[in-house]
Design a protein around this nucleic acid. Structure first.
Length: 335
DNA sequence: AAGAGGGACAACCGCCATGAA
DNA sequence: GTTCATGGCGGTTGTCCCTCT
């Protein structure tokens, strides 16, 4: 009943044809897009304004880069995601020529999986507690995820005989949720030895470069803040502290003792907050980031100590962010 | 050669914030 | 203060294409 006169033309859905693209581009180029709701009508398109807007923003805009993401872009996305979470639009503002949709797709289809493969929880950007995906296949894969300063881990000779470590983070007692055991093992342990540790209830997760970046940013941007806490930190420090692994020294792989690792180089710099870093690295440093129990493996620490250590040094870097500091700038400064 | 499975990407859906009426 | 239109955003789905069996 009168429906024929009031019937709106059926709006098209699905993929855009080249003709539709051309119409939209021609219209936007000529008149701009002050109001998307009138664009389809004036451009002669059977689409809703929202669809036109999306098509323009995600595909037709002339300043879009498209193509594969570079290593640097990957690295930036991972870092920004660690800071911003799934705020794709905000992340996209830091990657010229990339859309939020493009970055989101790239994350969901590629980066997230890569992180999982190297044992990093893509949600928290922290090592996963356990599970088949939580075991690092190689340090090389870390480098695939996050390149470092122009020389990713591909270039380091850690692939087969390098000094590799796995961080083990075990909740040692289901009933005592506030207690952890934290230890680190060189992955030069034989599979059998590793299995023994696994059988003993230890779950291995890899040292993560993400932590390294966080720690670096932490140090860079919160030096003053950290220095003020240095004394307290040292006082509170148990045997567990984060450190760097220097692969530039020869034959590190012969050692199975984590404590000996720190003896392989005398060039460690100790940051004021207990973060150790090699100096004069010369590009061959295995830039992974670990927790290190200097005395024994499987040291049990209580949750308070863990929290204190990890939050101050790296794990909760973002939560600690002083209000006058921009986390995005912090990430960009590292690039 | 054909079908299944998975990856990559485009587009849609639904919700929310904002501003104008 | 309320309603409505609009734009923006993140989650999700749909489609195409490639690889593998």
């Amino acid at each position: 009943m009168g429906s024929q006169s009031s019937a709106k033309p059926k709006l098209r859905k699905g993929l855009w044809s080249p003709e539709e693209d051309e119409k939209l581009v021609r219209y936007i180029t000529k008149y701009g897009h002050k109001c998307w709701s009138i664009v389809p009508k004036h451009a002669g398109l059977q689409r809703c304004g929202k669809s036109c807007r999306l098509r323009w923003i995600n595909y037709l805009r002339p300043d879009l880069k498209r193509g594969h993401f570079s290593q640097q872009e990957e690295e930036l996305i991972v870092k920004l995601h660690a800071v911003l979470g799934n705020r794709w639009a905000q992340i996209a503002t830091q990657l010229p020529g990339r859309t939020d949709n493009e970055i989101k797709n790239f994350w969901n289809s590629c980066l997230r999986k890569k992180l999982r493969q190297v044992g990093i929880d893509p949600h928290t950007h922290k090592p996963m507690a356990a599970g088949p995906d939580s075991v690092a296949r190689s340090s090389e894969e870390l480098g695939e995820v996050i390149g470092v300063s122009g020389h990713s881990l591909h270039n380091n000779h850690v692939k087969d005989n390098g000094f590799r470590f796995r961080q083990s983070l075990q909740q040692h007692n289901e009933e005592e949720e506030n207690s952890f055991s934290l230890s680190m093992l060189p992955i030069t342990l034989s599979p059998h030895q590793q299995q023994q540790h696994c059988d003993a209830g230890m779950n291995f997760v890899p040292a993560t470069l993400a932590f390294h970046h966080q720690a670096q940013a932490h140090h860079h941007h919160h030096q003053a803040h950290v220095q003020a806490q240095a004394q307290e930190q040292q006082t509170a420090a148990s045997s567990v502290f984060p450190f760097w692994i220097d692969n530039s020294s020869s034959n590190n792989s012969s050692s199975n003792s984590p404590s000996s690792c720190s003896e392989t180089t005398d060039s460690w710099s100790c940051f004021s907050d207990g973060i150790f870093s090699p100096t004069g690295t010369g590009g061959s440093v295995f830039k992974s980031w670990c927790f290190f129990d200097s005395s024994i493996l499987d040291t049990k620490i209580d949750a308070a100590s863990w929290q204190q250590q990890s939050s101050k040094s790296l794990a909760h870097f973002y939560d600690d962010e002083p209000t006058d500091s921009d986390p995005i700038s912090a990430v960009l400064d590292q690039m």
